[in-house]
Design a protein around this nucleic acid. Structure first.
Length: 884
DNA sequence: TGCTTCACG
DNA sequence: ACGTACGTGAAGCAC
């Protein structure tokens, strides 16, 4: 038994286009109508198992219907280009399915189908017509069923003559009369004005046809009578236009063709181009192309934009979203340009520009970003948060950040781009930012489609990387570190950065003019000593003056010439009066350029605030770094520079700057992780650790330790923390390598547990290939087995230093997260502003000062329980300088 | 852009 | 024999 299926191509394509959300492939081609059409086709093939199939299309704009009525289909909106571009694609796809298609100039799809169903009736072949057009019902017969699309495209309602009778009380042919009376706005068929479906049905039930209605118009009541009389001709013409022409001249071989199934390879190729990945899976089609090839690199998603979606559709889409990529261009997130964002949801990808995000239509997306209950996965959301903040958009609910995770998984890897991460996890490559945007002066935001696709590719990368990294964190024992420390900290940091710290420009300017005078004086005196003018800031020119013109002994060389660093100059001091002037000049010039001028440039003119950016993914040990400006290297050691700190003031009148710093945190950490009893005792007794070290290294009593001995012991302690070598210590203390070696030996005899730790940690690094902090932060040391002495030695010192510096970093990070919680819980107005590795800076209102003086050190000291107590000292004042 | 120098912990 | 202290960022110079 044959079974024919005849599809009204144009009708179904239009239905599909308006029923489906707007999708595009990664080349920017719209595919939604094709997709909808395809799902309908697949359903038909599966459920109906046709022996013959044909898709009919309208051909050309002018049909025979226009001959009698020029305005046929007039006033119809032009087919949107997003749809018309899909016709050739669809026709190709139908070919790939192995399904016949037909169109004939001058005729519409209905007429072709009408003609074919006439043939089907004659041959008594069971036939199904698929269309969205109710006109088709006129073709129903004992052998012909009409499937009309309902909601969407794949849901249909079937009509045979009986069902048409049940629903309308009409025979199939009376459907033509129905339209003759009603007309059809979409085809510009007039019908009788004022006659809708209800009236038309009533009339037809009464009189049976247009002709009979017109003949009995006199029996109608009131206005209807007039209208029918006035539009007799319209009604007749309308009926004619609505009648499907069933005598299209078709050759026999143009009839319905047998359907023999599709070639999987051919269909796979077509689906691949369209990026219908889910359909490929559904049909279990073969993969196209090989992994790693260009084909595999294509992104399988269907792009959606805002104006393609109704608000409810957008909200529905977002309700299932968790991944996001937000593009912010520029190194400084406080000034970065927001380009756009992409949010993948299942097989769709919402990708929008910053402009769209900020528009009215972007509101649901902004709400989604700001909803703390929606867990979000992204890439560098800390930066995104700041960039969005300055555009008035909140970003909340950050739960996983690919960049932050990549940092924990390998903190020494400087390349943490998505491009690199995709490669590292052997996922399909994505385009580099440089390829899309250009670099430096060549930077350009590309045209919309290219930008959107790049954002989409990155959002897709995020989605693919998240589960892999989550597993990797689990496997390396860093999940807790991630979720309980680093991720919460990122949010705390962003808060501190948004808050900023008040910097008094006037104070800096005053200091600047003082410095200027000092610099001018130095300059003149230096020129006098040198007997010539030159650029003191040029190490090359300075080297020539000192070592050639003045004939001073060159102590060190750099790659490019003489070294003129402070270490060299200090040793040259006895030889020439120019040296202290150069040192002084350097100090003043540094203060002027970096701290006065540099800082002034960073003060926001309207608010007087400075907003630094803490980078959480830079330092290999787990420390933070600070940029734009760096507020972790504001001078303190020399009084001249320390005065810079006077410019750092509270942002509210009557408030106080409060600074708390850990005392000897790294040596306390060393005491804990080495387990050295003597070192632990020293801290438990809260001794001055450098004096204690001097006593043990020099074998003297406390009151015999002079300032020089303490200074040297302090250097030894530093050396221990850094991973000591006799060379390093000898250099630092300006003593012989032998003497330095003796100090070290003495130290290890006094603190044998420390020696044990140092030996052990190096062995451990050699065994595992990495070292860890107390919180399981990891740092890989591939050079630990290097044959190159330098590389190996460096790795060994790093093995000794990283657990110490890194654990100290863990501790203050814990304290920051706890402190942030504490301020919220207690609803305090005090604000945490800065972190400087072992120090936290707050601004505190007067009525909270007493509380904060005890609360801050309590939280800091209680951040992590060690075998030795942690100690934090608190100071406060009207500015950062006074908080000493 | 790389190098040197120097500010901090 | 080798030959650096550990971790950062910013500025200015020279190429």
């Amino acid at each position: 038994m044959d079974k024919w299926i005849l599809i009204d191509g144009n009708s179904i394509v239009f239905r599909a286009f308006y029923a489906m959300p707007p999708l595009t492939n990664s080349a920017g081609m719209h595919t939604n109508a094709v997709y909808g059409f395809t799902t309908m086709l697949l359903k038909l093939l599966e459920e109906e198992k046709p022996t013959h199939m044909l898709v009919a299309f309208d051909a050309g704009k002018v049909t025979f219907r226009h001959e009698g009525y020029e305005d046929y289909k007039g006033g119809r909106a032009k087919t949107p280009p997003e749809l018309s571009e899909q016709f050739p694609v669809l026709k190709d796809l139908i070919r790939s399915f192995g399904i016949a298609q037909f169109e004939l100039p001058g005729y519409e799809a209905d007429d072709i189908i009408g003609t074919l169903t006439r043939m089907a009736d004659e041959r008594k072949v069971e036939t199904l017509i698929v269309s969205g057009d109710k006109d088709m019902l006129q073709l129903a017969s004992d052998h012909v069923t009409i499937a009309l699309t309902r909601k969407g495209v794949s849901e249909v309602e079937r009509y045979n003559p009986q069902e048409i009778m049940d629903k309308y009380g009409l025979t199939p042919l009376q459907i033509i009369d129905l339209k003759g009376l009603m007309g059809d706005a979409s085809d510009n068929i007039p019908g009788i004005p004022g006659v809708g479906e209800k009236t038309a049905l009533k009339m037809l039930h009464e009189y049976g046809s247009v002709e009979e209605v017109l003949a009995h118009s006199g029996e109608l009541k009131g206005k209807m009578k007039e209208k029918v009389a006035a539009h007799e001709e319209d009604a007749r013409m309308s009926k004619k236009l609505a009648t499907i022409f069933r005598e299209v001249p078709l050759d026999d071989e143009e009839g319905v063709k047998a359907y023999n199934g599709y070639d999987p390879a051919e269909l796979a190729e077509a689906f691949h181009k369209l990026e219908f990945r889910s359909l490929m899976e559904r049909l279990e089609l073969p993969e196209v192309g090989s992994a790693g090839s260009e084909a595999a690199a294509e992104i399988n998603h269907n792009l959606v934009s805002l104006n393609d979606l109704k608000t409810e559709e957008l909200e529905g889409l977002l309700s299932g979203a968790s991944n996001v990529y937000i593009e912010a261009i520029g190194d400084n997130p406080h000034h970065a340009e927001l380009l756009g964002l992409a949010i993948p949801v299942e097989d769709r990808m919402l990708a929008i520009t910053a402009e769209e995000l900020l528009s009215e239509a972007g509101k649901p997306v902004r709400q989604w970003l700001g909803n703390p209950d929606v867990r979000k996965y992204g890439y560098d959301l800390h930066k995104a948060d700041l960039t969005l903040h300055w555009r008035g958009i909140d970003l909340c609910g950050t739960d996983f950040d690919v960049l932050l995770a990549a940092y924990l998984l390998d903190p020494t890897e400087s390349n943490q781009t998505l491009v690199y991460l995709m490669q590292r996890y052997q996922l399909p490559a994505i385009q580099s930012d440089e390829a899309v945007y250009g670099r430096g002066a060549k930077f350009r935001v590309p045209e919309h489609g290219i930008l959107i696709r790049h954002l989409a590719a990155k959002a897709n990368a995020v989605r693919e990387l998240v589960p892999l990294q989550q597993k990797a964190l689990e496997d390396t024992g860093m999940s807790k570190l991630y979720y309980e420390l680093e991720q919460p900290l990122a949010i705390v940091l962003a808060g501190m950065e948004k808050q900023g710290i008040q910097v008094n420009a006037g104070t800096l300017e005053e200091l600047g003019s003082e410095l200027e005078q000092g610099i001018a004086r130095c300059k003149n005196e230096i020129y006098t000593h040198a007997g010539m003018e030159f650029n003191i800031g040029s190490p090359k020119q300075l080297g020539e003056v000192l070592f050639e013109k003045l004939g001073l002994p060159a102590m060190k060389k750099t790659k490019t010439g003489y070294s003129t660093d402070a270490d060299v100059l200090e040793r040259l001091e006895p030889y020439h009066g120019i040296i202290p002037l150069i040192l002084q000049y350097r100090t003043l010039a540094k203060l002027q350029s970096t701290y006065v001028e540099g800082l002034l440039k960073e003060i926001r003119r309207n608010s007087g605030m400075v907003h630094t950016y803490y980078r959480q993914t830079i330092a290999a040990t787990g420390r933070l770094s600070s940029q734009f400006p760096n507020l972790q290297n504001i001078p303190i050691r020399l009084e001249e520079g320390r005065r810079i700190r006077k410019a750092f003031v509270p942002s509210e009148p009557g408030w106080t700057i409060l600074a708390a710093d850990y005392s000897q945190i790294e040596l306390r950490v060393l005491a804990h992780i080495s387990g050295d009893e003597k070192l632990k005792e020293a801290f438990i007794a809260d001794m001055d650790i450098h004096t204690k070290t001097a006593m043990d290294v020099f074998g003297v009593s406390a009151d015999e330790v002079d300032s020089n001995m303490r200074r040297q012991a302090k250097a030894v302690n530093f050396g221990i923390v850094y991973g000591i070598s006799d060379f390093g210590l000898s250099n630092n203390l300006n003593i012989s390598r032998k003497d330095a070696g003796r100090f070290i030996e003495q130290y290890f005899e006094a603190f044998p547990g420390v020696r044990g730790y140092m030996d052990n940690i190096v062995l451990q690094a050699r065994n595992d290939g990495y070292v860890t902090t107390l919180l399981e932060r990891r740092r890989y040391l591939p050079d630990i087995k290097a044959s190159n002495f330098n590389l190996r030695s460096f790795a060994e010192r790093t093995a000794m230093n990283t657990p110490i510096q890194g654990t100290a970093a863990d501790i203050i990070k814990l304290a920051m997260v706890r402190m942030d919680e504490m301020l919220r819980e207690r609803k305090l107005r005090s604000r945490m502003l800065l972190q400087v590795h072992d120090e936290l800076v707050f601004e505190v209102p007067g009525d909270e000062l007493e509380l904060m003086k005890t609360l801050v050190p309590e939280v800091m000291e209680g951040a992590l329980k060690l075998d030795v107590p942690l100690k934090a000292d608190v100071n406060y004042g009207v500015n950062w300088y006074e908080a000493k």
